[in-house]
Computed example of a mutant assay.
Amino acid sequence: MINNQQIIDYVKRTVDLTDQEAVIFAASFREVKIKKRQFIVQPNFIVKNRNYVVKGAFRAYVVDDYGQDSTIAFAIEDWWITDYNSYILQKPATMFVIALEDSIILEISYEKEQMLKQSNHKFETFFRIRAERTAAFMQQRIISNLTQTAEERYDRFMERYPQIAERIPQYALASYLGMTTEFLSRIRNKKASKKS
């Protein structure tokens, strides 16, 4: 029940729910324990669930034809993660989502989400606002990748998400920021030497 309360508190920061609405919303989710290095999304399979992270950390990434992987997103507590293209369009996934730690998620199926949205405009409003914020974040990320230097991208990430940087492997952070692990090491060493 504590995990249900966590998602209810999260939703109430966006829309005001009655006690009955909160119970209905939370009842649509299923708690799942995920082991470190376990995949919750894999390419070529249609994604059936949207996932809210109760505890743990995840990485979403794609792999190109040469075996090079690129990190698309991270998620820690109170964040959502899935392959949204696959989930929303109900088409085969193109990315992997893997647990970086032993984790607990609350998952909602595509069908249950549609039923929630049809049953109550507050639920629809919540998911619409989530989608809008995700779209805005992705646009900011694209612009950042096109207009900022690698060091500026690193600084911005560390300023905004220091709690994530402590929990993810360096190779994953480097690929998210669009640089090699060696280049990220050089940036970190340069910054460490400035402090000392």
Rank of each mutant, 00 (worst) to 15 (best):
M1I: 03
N3P: 01
N4K: 12
Q5E: 14
Q5H: 09
I8S: 02
T14R: 07
D16W: 06
D16M: 10
L17V: 02
L17K: 05
E21P: 01
V23A: 14
V23E: 15
A26T: 03
A26E: 02
A26Y: 03
A27E: 08
I34F: 07
K35Q: 11
K35N: 12
K36V: 04
K36G: 01
F39D: 15
V41L: 13
Q42G: 03
P43E: 09
N44Q: 13
N44Y: 09
F45C: 07
F45M: 11
N49I: 03
R50H: 12
R50Y: 09
R50L: 14
Y52K: 10
K55C: 04
K55T: 06
K55A: 07
G56I: 06
G56Y: 05
G56K: 12
V62H: 13
V62F: 14
V63Q: 15
D64N: 13
D64Y: 09
D64K: 08
G67P: 04
Q68C: 06
D69R: 09
I72R: 14
I72D: 13
I76V: 10
I76N: 02
E77Q: 10
E77C: 02
D83A: 14
Y84R: 10
Y87E: 14
Y87G: 09
Y87N: 13
K91F: 00
K91W: 03
P92H: 05
A93L: 03
T94H: 07
T94V: 10
T94A: 11
M95H: 04
M95E: 08
F96W: 15
I98H: 07
I98W: 01
A99P: 00
L100A: 04
I104P: 01
I105E: 03
L106R: 01
I108P: 02
I108M: 05
S109D: 02
E111M: 07
K112A: 10
Q114K: 12
Q114N: 11
S119C: 04
N120H: 05
N120C: 11
T125V: 05
T125A: 15
F127I: 05
F127L: 12
T134K: 14
A135L: 12
F137A: 12
M138G: 00
I142L: 14
I143T: 11
S144W: 00
S144T: 04
N145C: 07
L146R: 07
L146F: 05
L146M: 15
A150F: 03
E151T: 02
E152M: 06
E152Y: 02
E152W: 02
R153L: 06
Y154A: 06
D155N: 07
R156L: 15
E159T: 09
R160Q: 15
P162I: 08
R167A: 03
I168S: 08
I168K: 12
I168G: 01
L173S: 07
Y176T: 00
Y176D: 04
G178H: 12
M179Q: 07
T181S: 13
T181C: 13
T181A: 15
E182T: 06
L184I: 01
R186A: 13
R186F: 15
K190F: 14
K190D: 11
A192K: 14
S193D: 14
K194F: 09
K194A: 05
S196V: 10
S196P: 00
